[in-house]
Simulated assay, not measured.
Amino acid sequence: MNSRRDFLQKVSLGIGVTALAGLPATAAAPSVPLVRAEKQLRVAIMGLGGYANIVADAMQKCTMATLVGVVSGTPSKIDTWKKKYNIPDKNTYNYETVSELKNNPDIDIVYVTTPNSLHHKHVLQIAATGKHVICEKPVADNAKQTREMIAACEKAGVKFYIGYRLHFEPHTRELIRMRESGELGKIMHVNNYMGFKSGDPTQWRLKKALAGGGAMMDVGVYALNGARYCTGEEPIWVTAQETKTDPIKFKEVDETITFQLGFPSGVIANCGTTYNFNNFERLYVIGEKGFVELSPAFGYGPIKGRTNAGPMNMPPHVPHQTLQMDGLADIILNNKPDPHITGQEGLKDMIVVDAVYESIRKGGQKIFINKA
């Protein structure tokens, strides 16, 4: 597999119909015409790489969110996207003209999908234009940058969200419902991991200046975020260990990390992430009354799950990005509840990521998490 995108695309199969409690019905069966809502969230995408293409394709099935603009430093990509998605010239920008977004009333929000270490710069730029922002995860290189991004958006009076697509995914939402309702009883243990074998050694994800870090930043955040929604708590300490079997390929970034999170209730979550092998994707939460296992748990789907009562029978698979973007539109346009996808949610993850790296630097020492 050449990249994270290739890996996740291989597990992204099928298109179907769904209607989630508290969220709009966001996709129609192939034989049913797509009916768009009267109110639309008008979206521009910044950074037209692999993931941007996945988001754009999924948005063609949205009923409440519409792709209307692009920001890219590559003119040929802009030309391709204009033709493919019928984007007008007036809604296209490069990185030098992005400030002109402030004069465009036809764009409501910009989705930043540039490499990780550019998120901080680009979110600040978008906030300054007065447009709402959604930023792909990981939100930034560290918690300090994240706080600056949140402050900039607050100062500009714009909304700031993170691309936590799984917070709109049916199996994940059902897990959270079961935990919140008490069906699982007191949570006793969590075991989460996410990783894959990284291919092309020249890709940007292996360059610290663009990626900020390696497997932990890219996909370890899934296991971390999952531990938080499995418990409904914030970790108070972390220990972490790194294994590096290919010091040449992974010279600049981490290869494989295991980490343990301690929660106020006494629960310990055992987590892991890697860039060096496949078949490493699972979420498992055990309570006094039952359990939930998702495997696959974090990829683009279909997600598969089971509980102590048997298989989780969810609606047919819909692209997660379709659910995410329609769900985000419902939040912004109709004031629907936020399922924990704001910049503050991203900050909570980055505080722990910082502690993971600190523990590794200190030889696996227990790091007590300072949320200040």
Rank of each mutant, 00 (worst) to 15 (best):
Ile303Ala: 06
Tyr222Pro: 00
Ser265Pro: 03
Gly213Lys: 07
Cys62Ala: 02
Leu210Phe: 13
Arg42Thr: 08
Val123Thr: 12
Asn270Tyr: 13
His171Met: 03
Ala309Phe: 14
Gln324Met: 15
Val68Arg: 03
Val352Tyr: 05
Gly301Gln: 05
Val190Ile: 14
Ala58Ser: 15
Ser295Pro: 00
Cys135Ile: 00
Gln9Ile: 11
Ala151Val: 01
Leu283Ala: 15
His132Phe: 00
Thr63Asp: 00
Thr231Val: 09
Val35Leu: 13
Lys121Val: 13
Pro339Glu: 05
Arg42Val: 08
Cys230Leu: 09
Val353Arg: 01
Asn94Ile: 09
Pro105Trp: 08
Ala355Thr: 06
Pro30Phe: 13
Leu224Glu: 07
Leu333Asn: 11
Gly185Arg: 04
Phe280Ala: 08
Asn86Phe: 13
Lys207Val: 13
Arg165Tyr: 15
His171Ser: 04
Leu210Gly: 00
Gln203Pro: 00
Asn53His: 11
Gly47His: 01
Arg165Lys: 12
Gly49Pro: 04
Asn313Ser: 10
Asn104Met: 01
Ser3Tyr: 07
Ile87Arg: 02
Leu13Glu: 14
Ala209Phe: 09
Lys208Ile: 14
Ala329Arg: 05
Ala65Val: 09
Thr80Phe: 15
Lys84Met: 06
Leu224Cys: 04
Gly346Met: 06
Asn94Gly: 10
Gly185Ser: 04
Val17Glu: 14
Ile134Leu: 11
Gly301Tyr: 09
Leu67Trp: 05
Lys336Thr: 12
Cys271His: 09
His119Leu: 03
Lys251Arg: 11
Ile303Glu: 10
Trp237Glu: 09
Asp106Asn: 12
Tyr161Trp: 07
Leu184Tyr: 09
Pro264Met: 03
Pro311Gln: 02
Gly47Trp: 02
Tyr111Gln: 06
Gly220Asn: 09
Lys144Phe: 11
Met217Asp: 07
Gly232Cys: 08
Ala156Ile: 09
Ile303Gly: 05
Gly299Arg: 00
Met59Ser: 03
Ser265Leu: 05
Gly287His: 10
Ile150Arg: 07
Lys207Phe: 05
Val98Met: 14
Leu23Tyr: 14
Gly266Leu: 08
Thr74Gln: 08
